[in-house]
Computed example of a mutant assay.
Amino acid sequence: MIVLDYPYVSKFLVESVRDLGLPVLDTPQVRELAGGVPLDYIDEIEFSARLALGGKVYTNSENGLEHVLRCRCNEDLARQVDICKDKALFRETVANLHPDYRFLRVSHAGLSGLDLSDFPVPFVIKPARGFFSLGVHVVNDLADWPATLEAIETERAALNAEYPEAVVSGAEFILEQVIDGEEYAIDVYYDAEGNPVITNILHHHFLSAADVSDRLYYTSARIIETWLLPFTEYVRDVGRECGFNNFVTHIEVRVTPEGDILPIEANPLRFAGWCVADITNLAWDFNPYECYFKELRPDWDAILEANKGQAVVMVIGDLPPGTDRESIGSIDYQGFQSMFSNTLELRKIDYKAYPVFAFAFARMDEPELARLKLALAEDFCRFVKMK
Rank of each mutant, 00 (worst) to 15 (best):
F286I: 05
L269H: 01
V312T: 10
I316E: 15
G329N: 14
I303C: 08
E290C: 01
G317F: 04
P268R: 08
L262S: 00
P321I: 05
C291W: 03
G322L: 13
L319K: 06
L319R: 09
P257Y: 00
L304C: 04
N281V: 06
D285N: 14
Y289C: 02
L304G: 06
Y292S: 11
S327Q: 15
A302I: 00
K294W: 06
L304N: 14
V255W: 05
I279C: 04
E265P: 11
L304W: 12
P263N: 07
E326Q: 15
D299F: 06
K308D: 09
L262G: 00
K308R: 15
L319S: 03
R270Q: 09
C291G: 03
D299Y: 11
D299C: 08
Y289T: 06
D332V: 14
T256E: 05
P320F: 00
E305N: 07
T323G: 09
L262R: 07
A266F: 03
G259R: 14
N281L: 10
R325Q: 15
D324H: 04
G309F: 01
Q310I: 14
V312C: 08
R270W: 10
R254F: 15
D318C: 07
R270H: 07
A283K: 04
P298K: 05
L304H: 13
L319W: 12
A311H: 02
G309K: 10
F271D: 00
V253N: 04
R297I: 01
F286V: 02
W274E: 03
N281H: 14
D332A: 09
E326W: 11
A266D: 11
Y289E: 05
N307Q: 14
N267I: 03
V313A: 10
I331L: 06
C291Q: 12
I316M: 13
G273E: 13
P288Y: 00
G309M: 00
V276Q: 06
I328D: 14
D332F: 12
D299S: 09
K308E: 15
G273M: 00
L262N: 05
I261F: 00
D285W: 09
W274D: 04
N267K: 10
A306S: 15
A277C: 06
S330V: 10
K294S: 14
D260S: 15
F293K: 08
L269M: 15
V315T: 13
E265K: 00
E295Q: 09
Y289S: 00
D332M: 09
I279V: 14
T323N: 12
L262A: 08
L304R: 12
N281K: 12
M314N: 15
I331R: 02
C275L: 05
P257S: 04
P268V: 00
E290G: 05
V312N: 03
L319V: 06
V253G: 06
G317Q: 12
Q310N: 13
F271C: 11
E258P: 11
G309I: 13
P288C: 13
P298F: 07
E305D: 14
E295I: 04
P257G: 10
D260T: 15
D324K: 04
E265Q: 10
F271H: 04
P257T: 01
